[in-house]
Structure formats: C-alpha cells, structure tokens
Simulated scan of single mutants.
Amino acid sequence: MGTTDETDPSDGPAFQPVFENRVRFAETDQQGIVFYGEYFTFQDEAVSEFFRQIDYSYEKMEDDGWEIHVANAELNYRDGAEFGDVLVNELRVAEIGTASVTFDYRVRRTGDDAVLADGTVTHVAVDGETGETTPVPDAFREAIAAFQGGLPTDG
C-alpha cells in the first residue's frame, strides 16, 4: 500500500486528516506494539472528530431527532505502531445511502508516513425515539459535502 495520498478521484473524495494521537504505553501489548483492538478506538475517535469538524455533533443529531449506530466495522493491519509514535487518523465518506453512511478510515505514522491500518465503519441512521431506521438528513449530507468537496455519489 502506498504511503502518500495518491487518491484516485474515481475512488471517491480524498482522505481528510481529522485526528492525531501519540501512542500511549497503555495502548501497547507485550511485544511493545499497539494492541490491534486500539485501532478500533482510534477509528471511533476519528469519526467523532470528523463530526466536530463538519460542525454536526452528536448533540446536534439528538436535537434533530436522530442518531447513528455502528452496523459494521472492519480493519486491515498493515504495520505496527510503537509507544511514542505520532499517528494521523484520516477519514472520508465513501458511501452514503438513504439511511447509512460508510467511512473509509486509515491511520499513518508521521515519522515515515507508513499506513498502519485501514478499513471501514458503517453507521445506520435511526430515529432518536423509536430506534427505527430513518433517512440521513439533508443537512448532514450537505455538511459532509462541504467538508470533503462533494459526496461519493456525486458523479
């Protein structure tokens, strides 16, 4: 996998760096590398930061009567990070359906720009009161499009 952002426009919008973290000792395993499960935490932090950066917080979702639930999360491990490494977590909305949003995620080490992990996380929009699936609001779609220069469905 490449170490620079040579995103092919046909693959969707460019990845956006949204969250940076320094690996803490508590995130490493006995071998001294980041425990694989921590990458899901990093992925979740990146999604939360993405929402802050598009100015569409969880509180705004609740105020608007909807919320999101994770339906699927996947990660591919490419290389190991160690205590003290600085990581840049990147996201892009790869797909947005009627009631779901799928993010592509990847994390790079700043020292050598190596991709350490990549994957996806899919959220489903649900009504805040009933828990039933609901359409993703237009305001949320517009916030995503403004942040990443369009939606993946924009040809």
Rank of each mutant, 00 (worst) to 15 (best):
residue 90 E to C: 14
residue 88 V to E: 03
residue 59 E to W: 03
residue 98 T to F: 11
residue 62 E to V: 14
residue 59 E to Y: 05
residue 97 G to E: 04
residue 44 D to I: 02
residue 90 E to M: 14
residue 98 T to D: 06
residue 70 V to W: 03
residue 68 I to K: 02
residue 63 D to T: 14
residue 57 S to Q: 10
residue 45 E to D: 14
residue 63 D to F: 05
residue 86 V to M: 06
residue 47 V to R: 04
residue 92 R to N: 02
residue 44 D to A: 04
residue 38 E to Q: 15
residue 84 G to V: 03
residue 60 K to M: 02
residue 39 Y to K: 13
residue 48 S to T: 03
residue 95 E to D: 11
residue 88 V to G: 05
residue 68 I to R: 04
residue 99 A to R: 15
residue 65 G to C: 04
residue 63 D to A: 13
residue 71 A to N: 01
residue 39 Y to P: 10
residue 51 F to V: 05
residue 41 T to P: 07
residue 66 W to P: 13
residue 66 W to R: 09
residue 94 A to C: 11
residue 59 E to D: 05
residue 41 T to W: 06
residue 98 T to Y: 06
residue 98 T to L: 10
residue 38 E to C: 10
residue 55 D to M: 08
residue 54 I to T: 09
residue 59 E to M: 12
residue 59 E to Q: 06
residue 65 G to H: 05
residue 41 T to K: 11
residue 84 G to H: 00
residue 53 Q to Y: 13
residue 61 M to D: 01
residue 96 I to T: 01
residue 85 D to G: 14
residue 41 T to F: 09
residue 87 L to E: 14
residue 94 A to K: 12
residue 81 A to F: 05
residue 43 Q to R: 09
residue 82 E to A: 13
residue 96 I to A: 03
residue 74 E to G: 12
residue 69 H to E: 01
residue 58 Y to G: 01
residue 93 V to M: 04
residue 43 Q to C: 11
residue 50 F to K: 01
residue 79 D to M: 11
residue 62 E to Y: 08
residue 92 R to P: 05
residue 69 H to N: 05
residue 61 M to R: 10
residue 51 F to K: 03
residue 88 V to Q: 05
residue 89 N to M: 15
residue 51 F to H: 04
residue 78 R to N: 03
residue 79 D to E: 14
residue 89 N to I: 13
residue 81 A to M: 00
residue 99 A to W: 07
residue 45 E to K: 13
residue 65 G to N: 00
residue 91 L to K: 09
residue 96 I to F: 02
residue 64 D to I: 15
residue 53 Q to C: 13
residue 67 E to C: 06
residue 60 K to G: 00
residue 52 R to H: 10
residue 89 N to D: 09
residue 96 I to R: 04
residue 78 R to D: 01
residue 43 Q to F: 15
residue 55 D to Y: 11
residue 99 A to D: 07
residue 89 N to H: 15
residue 38 E to K: 12
residue 87 L to Y: 09
residue 48 S to L: 05
residue 79 D to R: 15
residue 86 V to R: 00
residue 93 V to K: 00
residue 64 D to K: 11
residue 45 E to T: 11
residue 75 L to R: 07
residue 82 E to D: 10
residue 75 L to Q: 08
residue 86 V to I: 09
residue 70 V to M: 06
residue 70 V to I: 14
residue 49 E to C: 13
residue 94 A to W: 09
residue 79 D to C: 07
residue 63 D to P: 08
residue 82 E to C: 15
residue 73 A to N: 02
residue 57 S to K: 06
residue 99 A to I: 05
residue 51 F to G: 03
residue 60 K to P: 00
residue 49 E to Y: 12
residue 42 F to L: 13
residue 78 R to W: 03
residue 84 G to F: 01
residue 94 A to V: 10
